[in-house]
Design a protein around this nucleic acid. Sequence first.
DNA 1: CCAAAAGTGTTCAGGCTACACCCATGT
DNA 2: ACATGGGTGTAGCCTGAACACTTTTGG
Lengths: 229, 229
Amino acid sequence: MSYTYEYPRVALTVDGVVFGLDGGELKVLLIERGIAPFKGQWALPGGFVHENETLEAAVARELEEEAGLHGVFLEQLYTFGAVRRDPRERIVSVAYYALVNLADHTTRAATDAADARWFPAARPPGLAFDHAEILTMALQRLRGKLRYEPVGFELLPEKFTLTQLQQLYESVLGVPLDKRNFRKKVLGFDLLIPLEETFRDGPHRPAQLFRFDPARYEQLKQEGFHFEL
Amino acid sequence: MSYTYEYPRVALTVDGVVFGLDGGELKVLLIERGIAPFKGQWALPGGFVHENETLEAAVARELEEEAGLHGVFLEQLYTFGAVRRDPRERIVSVAYYALVNLADHTTRAATDAADARWFPAARPPGLAFDHAEILTMALQRLRGKLRYEPVGFELLPEKFTLTQLQQLYESVLGVPLDKRNFRKKVLGFDLLIPLEETFRDGPHRPAQLFRFDPARYEQLKQEGFHFEL
DNA sequence: CCAAAAGTGTTCAGGCTACACCCATGT
DNA sequence: ACATGGGTGTAGCCTGAACACTTTTGG
């Protein structure tokens, strides 16, 4: 590393791909741009990184400011550095993806600036900049994560039924799963705690509610346990 | 994204974690720093991103300048943005990892600046900045990639034996593998082309040489094939 | 002929897949 | 009583793990 004290500086932004689950469909949160370029188009929430904040803090702040979201699961996705990705000048952007429980957050899109809305993640409107590419990568990553790590619970309310969990997997992965096999496997991990309560929904048998046990997961990870599907 | 035309800019660097395989041991390429801070300590090769180059181009350039490497396998690892990771000022760094075939490249470390050497990846010397953390993450990533994608060939010469391939997996993953099972599985993928040649090494039966078939891999990927181990 | 690494098959256990019916409830 | 989703077990198959000897060569 040949550091000197004069060097080029670039503008650095963060962007957040926020996923939520709405009635079994995976959604993504988009913001309507109020200014040029791409004025009036939809874009991922995001903005410039301040001098004294970490990248993750910057995304968290932007999500709070632009959509009233806080305390969500955040993970770095990829850094996009194509030279002309912003028409004005060179801007490098570090993208994160976030998982939120829509039941708790659905009401609070749009506090800042223009409009904010949830769109089907699989068929978004035309997006500003290279945000379509970012979204595509985030979707791929989410699918991968879901298979190999128990992050799906971040998209569900704290108490959920096995059917909800199965529908989550089916809609994100895009494949139907066998009910009996799914339940056998998931319960076999011993990561779900059955609650006393049940969930009443309609004219049928009420469903058992569960919650995820993160402490147990940490313990299993130590022991070399490998979550899959 | 509330872009304005005045915003903070940060210094942006790239760092490269270059892995090579030397006699069955995984090595990493380090550069001795010629200037403060951390003068005399070992660090990952890297440097500032120029205004008109992509991130990947920047790493490729630095690897060429500092170690004479070119045409290596490169993949983005993670972006490190802790506020005080550089003692002088805020510097964000996009880390990449690279896989090189040491047989072809071993002779040419150190063309630029100070010294450049290969160290055992599992027990490196003390490293400058947060480079130890970057190296650790790169190692984890390499292990993951190796299991789920056929990238190991990047570390081997174009023609290699199954024993070489197995040793690569054993030393990177850190576990012994059964010879018969390994061969059965690897050959079952139909991704290796047996060559006419054999490899003579010592007073024993010569080994069949193979080469990896990238086209075949692309084809299989289309068909929903899933490489593992 | 000896030493050294290359190469090769079978058995067994555990996990994955496929598949159909009864249960609890609300109307 | 009926409609609706919740909940459960088994049998066949396939994959992964364990395991030892013969082959080819150089010295």
